[in-house]
Nucleic acid binder design. Structure first.
Lengths: 225, 225, 225, 225
DNA sequence: CATGAATGAGTGTTCATTCAT
DNA sequence: TATGAATGAACACTCATTCAT
């Protein structure tokens, strides 16, 4: 009727799914899968409940989409950054830990582990995807970095494969702490984790744990009798 | 077999609650809170659904009881063991990490973090209890140990308060890995964590990261320009 | 029959609540609050159980709505009729008693007192509403009428305030009799109340009781020694 | 063991049923049949829930017993008193109305009509019993009295059969008012019924309505044109 | 495309009734 | 006789899913 080519009030139908996923991430992250109602997701996304079913065949599929769409772009980014950095291994490790910790503590993304942990039992296919997409790639990355440091003479020889998850652990702890428990710490006296300071400390201990010692010592600790 | 004429009957008020809690732990750990039906808990405990309500006023209270009853005795045990060990700090730290990792990977207890992570948002009082009972005590314990090592000249001076959670992180990762993701690793090629080897590696890196270096080096890392 | 292509379908938000209330009144009146199942109300209203919850947040609220929606329009009608009648007081009283008795005995409305009586203890807010809406207004109406008759010299001076409920009593008895006990009178020999004849008799005795006596007598009876 | 012949702490087993009925009356009167839990009755009666079933085969039978045991002795008393009174009919009527009103307003018995009204639909046999025991006898009594008054020249000729329930109506209203609605009257301004004053007023109007008029008037009112 | 009224299977909770002791 | 732990049928209420408009 009017000549207006693209009335601004009409949300492009291609934007819809993302808005729904965003709303769903917010609510799933807060309440978990079962305790989140499609009614609420629809309301938050500004659509009707029926509309959800135009884009996602079921609540379960929406949930999977939320997790995957939240992860995939960030995985790509992380891989890209990694491939380029050619500096001293310690410096690279430091950057990566700092970057991931910031992401875990400061963005919505940090809530993903919580979601996957909670629902892995009920969503096997989601768990399988997640294992491949996150821990597998993450562990492998840390392992390659450590092996590179050892090969370049920066690090002591260590069991890189076994030790890789240790470098992922503080990131996981950070994410869960910020998104799960910290909100329930009663004001004064409760435990506190300051992301920057925590990660500084981790880097200090972990890199020192890897670095070659000036004199002998080090290496795999001898077994106790 | 036994001479007892009717030994199977009327276990009485004493045994019942524990049997119910045990059945509930099993199911909650597998399916989460919402996806576990009281019918199933009752069946597994060998009682009727109504009987659950003789001992627990609601599903929520049963859930809280499950978490608390699973944790409390083990917390007591852990504290007791700690108070006695007077050996070299490094050795104590090693023992503790080994012990906790074994517990996380090898017992039902390892499923508790998963449960709490999944439901903290819906059970604030449970989350508050957990924060006080587990991370607060755990972090404090690692902090005291590190400070003791520093004071006795075994360890470099490090930011003990900030770094304490780093020692808890591999335990958490271990627990979640074993009870959440590992079951979904597709046979060949997926990531694997062998508890013993993983913890050996962690101890190696972490203790080396704490130990005093024979010469210069070490200490808090200088900030990058 | 009708040309309407699909007239039976989707009656829409407007008609539904009233149909539900009507069905509920029927069943509550017959079985009482507790013994009426939402399933049955839904079936009788031709909707599903879930639909009830689109319009009423709980069984209790539905119950309150039933009582209020049954009463309110009729209260309005009654008040309007009253305000207009300017004839001889005795005639007005006669008309009102006759009208109310007819309503009590001949319409669904007569079941309301039974419902309120049965559930007042469990629905305080309903009881409060009812007290204000029915007895308070009703007693006040009879009192005004009596006082008007006295002022106009038609009636003896009587304690109008105290005596007003007496005029409501046969209406109440009529309603309860018809909707509660009469169905249980075993055929021959049981007590019978014929509404018309009963109300004629009531009017005869009550109006004679109010009317001025041609000679002395009357008035407040002297106390017995 | 001890020689004590009848230890006073042992409630005679014959007292039990009455204690249970008393406790049940109290609770049924307050909450109605469905909303009263056997648990509560047992607790109030000082016995265990199982014990109830030693004396009453079901909740329904207990309910019937409560109503019947509350009514029967009082019915007997009322009949006896009536048979003896040979004074002026007006005086007898006055006494009876006063006595019944006092009972309705001042004793537990006044709650019975409420119970029967509430549950007649669900307890046909109870309703049948009640109809025979209370309204049938009550209406007949008032009818005989009126007829006696007419025969003795004290009263106008009226339709005694039709009018009898009118004399029961204020008693019913009184009972329901005191036991159902009055507790929900909000302090100031709500309707109030003072038993003594109300009954005085009723007696005044009703007896005047029956009494012979000194001159003409009276009699069955002529039909309106 | 979008809506939202309608559905009904599923589940937590209650409570009258039973029965081994 | 008395107990009270145990039962399980019954029911209110929720919410993912459908579909006529």
């Amino acid at each position: 009727m009017t000549a207006a080519p693209k009335p601004r009030w009409r949300r492009r139908k291609d934007a819809r799914p993302d808005e729904i996923v965003a709303a769903a991430l917010e609510l799933f992250a807060t309440h978990g899968f079962a305790a989140t109602r499609l009614d609420d997701i629809a309301r938050r996304a500004g659509v009707s409940k029926g509309t959800l079913y135009l884009y996602f065949p079921s609540k379960e599929e929406l949930f999977k989409s939320v997790v995957k769409e939240a992860l995939l772009p960030n995985l790509a980014k992380a891989e890209a950054r990694l491939a380029e950095d050619k500096g001293p291994t310690a410096r690279v490790l430091e950057d990566i830990l700092g970057g991931l910790a910031g992401m875990a503590a400061g963005t919505r993304l940090g809530a993903i582990p919580k979601l996957v942990i909670a629902e892995a039992g009920n969503f096997p296919s989601l768990a399988e995807f997640y294992v491949e997409a996150v821990p597998k790639r993450g562990f492998a990355m840390f392992r390659r970095l450590i092996e590179r440091g050892v090969a370049q003479g920066e690090f002591r020889p260590v069991d890189a494969e076994a030790v890789a998850p240790l470098f992922a652990a503080p990131i996981l702890l950070m994410a869960l702490w910020k998104h799960v428990l910290e909100p329930h710490v009663k004001s004064k006296g409760g435990p506190v984790i300051e992301p920057k300071r925590f990660i500084q400390g981790c880097i200090d201990v972990l890199l020192n744990g890897l670095r070659k010692r000036p004199a002998g010592g080090g290496g795999q600790k001898e077994k106790r009798p």
